[in-house]
Design a protein around this nucleic acid. Structure first.
Lengths: 205, 205, 205, 205
DNA sequence: CTTTAAGCGAGACGGTACGTCTAGTCTTGTT
DNA sequence: AACAAGACTAGACGTACCGTCTCGCTTAAAG
């Protein structure tokens, strides 16, 4: 999480309690205030910790906030809802619900914005968030193939997985964060109709 | 562009040259530094203008930067390529090309990130960027209807326009800025196939 | 007092009221807290002024405190007591009384101690305190010459003024702050006898 | 030297080498940096010792530095130069030479400054520095009396010794450390003329 | 020859202040 | 009026140091 040199063995060990308190405080402050108005002094005060203790663990405000939020994107699941359409609608609504939380929306966009001029951060996001969530698409396709809803792969499905992921995640993120309109059951249904119709048409070629 | 009170008629008129210089300076600073590190003093200095001249035109930093960003997206056009499919592929590639420029990618993400915790900014983005670019979808549908490629509207097409816009813009932005993979002619073709297939299926219900 | 570039002519002029408020606050804080515990933030708060307003005028804490200390010594006066001897005894007792106040003794020694390894500070002390107080010696000599107690200058009196100042100030400071013995009327009388006798002998050569 | 509780008898004894290393490091740091910029962490690092080892021996920074400096003032001597005038000029130049070394000037002023608000330290300085150097004045007077340059004492000379000492030491310290002007042979000659003339005049009363 | 009380190096900790930077406002004199 | 210049309040930033507090390890004398 925080950059902790593993080689040290002398000196007083860092307080694990402080780690937790700081990350909790940072998450809480992020939700209440947003990235720009969150201040290190405030986080330190909330955590009951000195400001130096923050700077001993993270080089600056960005590093801390990115870490404070990184774990929020692991909670997406793909419960089996019995049909491809239900699975897609479910994951769309679940993802939208996540993005409706200020903590997550702020964190995701802030980190992506920061990444537009930081190649290393871009790679980190791709590994930690993008590739992780592609598993949801892969799992959904597998189930649909088992159910006979879509034909089995006859080649490498990577390109199609990528496309599906970009369309689903892109549309939800765009509607929730750029257009700023609600991702409700109705929109999810209409979106799913378009997506599945499009995929059927594409594979029929 | 900038909020210009129309009631004034006496006194020295505002310098149009200053308007241009400020917006140019803001765009340049935004690209070089990103949202967070851009400062009003720096923009004023680049524009060769006093800080008061900025604040006379825009209420605060956010307002100025949003305007500077919005102008970047006004260059998108929809030349008639003869078919709906060609028009969609064309606008996808055009939009992707825009997002491949560091200027635009940084600006868009910066402004969206800032908006995640700023309701007023969100409204401003929607008015200055989102609604403005929906014109492309509306125009594309109109042409396709004239060509007979899609049936004429039998109700209010707003919801469908919104959905199409979210899907196109979302998928392109997501692939270009989050997944960080190229939006090339091949991807555009496959995406268009899915989109048009989906829309056909949706209207066939 | 504070470094004020005289060449500027545009922009808002610096507040003379702030100048006064800051120096007053600094003097007060110096008396209450001593050099080490005086903080810039505290001085700013006492003066009802932002910290930046301090740093716009003085480069750092030392510079400000030196000026504040210098002002403490501006209250020394040389009322005409009718004879050179009475004037010397008067200023010796006045100076000793000043050094008996903890505020002044602490401030003077602190600033001199700080200056032992800071060439710039040394120059500043010389300009702000030493040269400023030499006025007392110059004025005393002028009066004595008018009274006919000492002959008029027949050359540049600077070296003699310097010597007299070092002897008077040095002896008083040394007795009060290093030897730590009282500078009373008796000591002042004996010291004055030695000083005036010495000066008479020196000019008789 | 350092406050060492005598009651302990078990456990690992304190390292005498650390004592030396710390005091040496403190003296060196004091000369290089001055009192204010000397830091306990830096002294510990120079001494190759942990900060706790410093605080086990001295309660705080002041205590350590005072101890580090105490021994520096024992080197003044009064060789017989054959006449009172030559002896005075000699001791003036010798004392000035001592104060021209950064080590001594910094140490002396630092310790005096600290003493302005520490009664115990003031007494300690008086015993260790002031009274010790008064022997130079006493010895000089004795020699001059033997040579017949000044009349023998007809009462208690203490008050006069004190006055002479304050004048000499005060003037030299003031010129060297406050006025910051060179104490050269010329100044020493002029000062001696004034001092001896003054003393002659005073005893002629 | 083990126990034991303390010293020791390393470095984290709560604090406090530093000096810098920026936002957004205000005050001059000039155009 | 707008403008250039720059002072102003407010407050966060990231750094440095103080003096304290764990850690785990070392060292001598006491048992």
């Amino acid at each position: 999480m925080c950059a902790r040199e593993t080689g040290r063995r002398t000196g007083r060990p860092r307080s694990a309690e402080a780690d937790r308190a700081i990350l909790d405080a940072a998450r809480q402050a992020l939700v209440e205030l947003g990235w720009g108005r969150l201040s290190m002094g405030d986080v330190a005060a909330r955590a009951g910790v000195a400001k130096t203790t923050l700077y001993r663990r993270w080089a600056n405000k960005n590093e801390l906030v990115v870490d404070a939020v990184a774990a929020l994107f692991d909670e997406l699941e793909l419960p089996d809802r019995g049909s491809l359409r239900a699975d897609v609608e479910g994951v769309v609504l679940q993802f939208a619900a996540l993005l409706e939380q200020p903590a997550t929306r702020t964190a995701l966009m802030a980190v992506v914005a920061e990444a537009t001029h930081d190649e290393a951060l871009r790679r980190r996001i791709r590994a930690a968030i993008v590739d992780r969530q592609k598993r949801l698409v892969i799992e959904g396709r597998r189930r649909a193939q088992e159910r006979g809803e879509i034909p089995p792969d006859d080649g490498d499905p990577t390109a199609q997985v990528d496309l599906i992921f970009d369309v689903i995640a892109g549309a939800v993120v765009h509607r929730a964060l750029v257009s700023c309109e609600p991702v409700d059951a109705d929109w999810a249904a209409r979106f799913t109709t378009v997506l599945l119709g499009g995929l059927a048409a594409a594979s029929a070629i």
